[in-house]
């Protein structure tokens, strides 16, 4: 993939030369981005996105959050050039979103994996590789690597029509990564995945960030967003309601939590006394619960290690 990286570097330097306003640290820029859906006669049907101003920085995981119909998918489609803005501008890598050449550095996983069901996994990735004008050797190598990466080695010669939803999602992600993109746009990346798949997808997203890629994802599964995103934007009925770092947005500044291990009951009582002495209110002292996700993953992991046996302690 050395060739691809060098080509994207060349591309960046070219852009810097031609567009003096281009800031390589800003990957996505939405300026007053508005989308109004109209009917055949041009009458306004719905205002899907209203004057969105947004910047996504290089190397971060950015989450678009909101209920159904809030404008998340519309924003992603505008950024991809699948829709044209009614007003405002969507800029990706310093280029207009309708410009085709920007796609060379983008990977996109749509909401549903809209892939050709009559192709096999290998054929699918090979086809998308060709669309990036990849030479044959690079393509072959990349296809095999991605198939292994998304864990579809056993099903690579099966037509996608035979795939389960989770498998389709994985091959969808693989096609989004075929060009080793600098920016990955993920529309509901965990939808339809089992907890194990969800975990893997989230790990993959974090790994992409570690590789220096920028990830933009939209989801209404708050837990997923909280787990992986560095920054989020919350949309509601087409308006931007909140924007910022996840850790600072979720921080409750007037509460303090203390976590400790193997603390005897007497010590717990002593701590309560200290809190009272300093005028604080004790909200609760209890043993923390693990999440269902963690429990589930633990069971699956143990089952893989000792197949056929009931996982010990799971009923305790």
């Amino acid at each position: 993939m050395a060739t691809d990286t060098s080509s994207s570097e060349t591309k960046t330097s070219k852009l810097e030369q031609t567009n003096p306003d281009y800031n390589p640290n800003i990957v996505i820029e939405a300026q007053n981005l508005t989308k109004i859906y109209r009917d055949f006669w041009g009458r306004q049907k719905v205002r899907a996105l209203n004057a969105l101003d947004l910047e996504v920085k290089k190397g971060e995981i950015f989450g678009l959050l909101g209920p159904n119909g809030s404008g998340k998918s519309t924003t992603i489609k505008l950024l991809l050039g699948l829709l044209f803005p009614t007003s405002g501008r969507a800029v990706v890598f310093g280029e207009n979103a309708t410009e085709v050449t920007k796609n060379e550095r983008i990977g996109y996983l749509p909401e549903e994996s809209y892939l050709y069901k009559f192709l096999t996994a290998e054929e699918t990735l090979d086809f998308y590789g060709r669309l990036f004008d990849m030479p044959s050797e690079v393509r072959k190598e990349r296809v095999q690597k991605l198939i292994q990466q998304v864990g579809l080695g056993h099903a690579k010669r099966r037509q996608l029509r035979e795939y389960s939803k989770g498998m389709t999602r994985r091959i969808g992600l693989a096609q989004a990564l075929i060009n080793d993109p600098d920016l990955v746009l993920l529309d509901e990346p965990t939808s339809g995945l089992d907890p194990l798949g969800t975990r893997e997808m989230k790990d993959m997203i974090l790994k992409l960030r570690d590789e220096g890629k920028t990830v933009v994802m939209c989801s209404h599964l708050l837990g997923d967003v909280q787990d992986v995103c560095d920054r989020i934007a919350i949309l509601y009925q087409g308006d931007l309601k909140e924007l910022g770092r996840v850790d600072s947005l979720l921080q409750v500044s007037d509460e303090t939590s203390i976590r400790a291990k193997n603390l005897p009951a007497a010590a717990q009582e002593e701590i309560r006394e200290v809190i009272k002495k300093h005028g604080g209110d004790v909200i609760g002292v209890e043993n923390p619960k693990s999440t269902l996700e963690e429990l589930f993953l633990q069971i699956v992991r143990e089952s893989e290690q000792r197949p056929g046996q009931r996982v010990s302690g799971s009923d305790s």
Partner: peptide, 14 residues
């Protein structure tokens, strides 16, 4: 209709 074209036009395809 099937939206498979989404995965095509988001590649550098003219």
């Amino acid at each position: 209709k099937n939206k498979t074209i989404y995965t095509i036009v988001t590649k550098p395809v003219r």
